[in-house]
Design a protein around this nucleic acid. Structure first.
Length: 327
DNA sequence: TTGTGTTTTATTGCCTCC
DNA sequence: GGAGGCAATAAAACACAA
């Protein structure tokens, strides 16, 4: 058998297709060409709806037979020999499947998007198409389906990310707000206490107040810049007795490192001190701490926080974090 | 009418499975 | 090794604005 599909190459199924068509042709050697055409159910006008790929087969007699297996509407009697001749002379062209054919294939695809050989043959028979065409249609349809699914998955992921990001941003703002409130309350408390006790060296304090802004007071680990009971009472106003954040003079917070005490970590580290070593810090403490004249031997320069938890956790911005995200 | 972008049909080459 | 699936791609058909 010599079979060559048009368009060059012909593909693997070309042989199978040739076999089918040749068998059909041989089976009905006296059959007119019109028997290959299906009546159109959607259009009364004569039209060629199948591809015009012309498959030539040299039969055993050496003559060339041209098969046009999947025209869905062609009335040979109406069009006459001229049209037929004109059609045969036309160079092969791609033809789209008819609406009915596509609908039929779509329904079949919904049932099962894979095509077993028997089903392929049956569909081809029902639609007047080549089995190869049915296979190609399913293949292309699977590709389109996959593309759509990817788009949907991407949209879902994007929505999920946006929602999470909004939540995260909201929480960050809330955290900043609460932190500011804590700082203000503690600051007020301290100032009131200092005024009430009158132990503060005002002249010295005035000088210090110019160096260290009140919004970010430096607090030591033993007394938060003043007496332990001062900061303790202040804290007790901020954190209630049941609060997980503070018990027995120690803050237990997810925001803090394990073992850190509030006296060290309630406040952000002073930027101007953040790069100092402990020795430098001690020196800095002696020179600048606002209440050093109260209990000099207890003053310890505030422990500096390594990381600022107001920033997103590294893992959140990290690629690895999102690559492990389950959605 | 024509240029351009999109969709559909078909081919090709590679890969996997039996 | 053959059959079939898939990705990439070509090319025809189609839609549509200018």
């Amino acid at each position: 058998m010599a079979a060559c599909a048009s368009g060059g190459g012909g593909g693997r199924d070309g042989g199978g297709l040739g076999t089918v068509l040749l068998q059909t042709h041989r089976g009905g050697a006296s059959q007119p060409l019109g028997s290959f055409f299906l009546p159109s159910s959607s259009s009364s006008s004569p039209s060629f709806l199948g591809p015009r790929s012309i498959v030539r087969f040299d039969d055993t007699n050496g003559s060339t037979t041209t098969s046009r297996p999947f025209f869905t509407a062609f009335d040979a009697d109406e069009n006459g020999d001229d049209d037929l001749d004109e059609y045969f002379r036309q160079p092969e062209k791609k033809r789209r499947l008819s609406v009915d054919q596509v609908q039929f294939l779509e329904k079949s695809f919904e049932v099962e998007n894979k095509l077993e050989p028997e089903r392929k043959i049956q569909l081809a028979k029902d639609l007047g198409l080549q089995p190869r065409q049915v296979a190609i249609w399913f293949q292309n349809r699977r590709a389109r389906w996959k593309t759509k699914r990817l788009e949907k998955d991407y949209d879902a992921l994007q929505s999920s990310f946006d929602a999470l990001k909004a939540d995260y941003d909201g929480l960050l703002k809330e955290k900043d707000k609460l932190k500011a409130e804590v700082i203000n309350l503690l600051t007020d408390k301290l100032q009131k206490k200092e005024r009430a006790t009158g132990t503060l060296d005002l002249s010295h304090n005035d000088a210090m107040s110019r160096e260290i802004p009140l919004e970010k007071p430096i607090v030591d680990s033993s007394g938060a810049g003043c007496k332990q009971e001062d900061i303790s009472s202040a804290r007790s106003d901020i954190f209630d007795a049941d609060s997980p954040h503070y018990t027995d003079g120690v803050v237990h917070s997810s925001l803090l490192e394990a073992g850190d005490s509030i006296s060290s970590y309630v406040f952000e580290p002073d930027n101007q001190s953040s790069d100092l070593s402990q020795d430098e810090a001690d020196n800095h403490n002696n020179n600048n701490f606002c209440c050093r004249n109260l209990l000099p031997d207890q003053y310890v320069f505030p422990k500096l926080e390594d990381e600022d938890y107001s920033d997103p956790p590294a893992s959140f911005e990290d690629q690895a974090f999102w690559s492990s995200w389950p959605y």
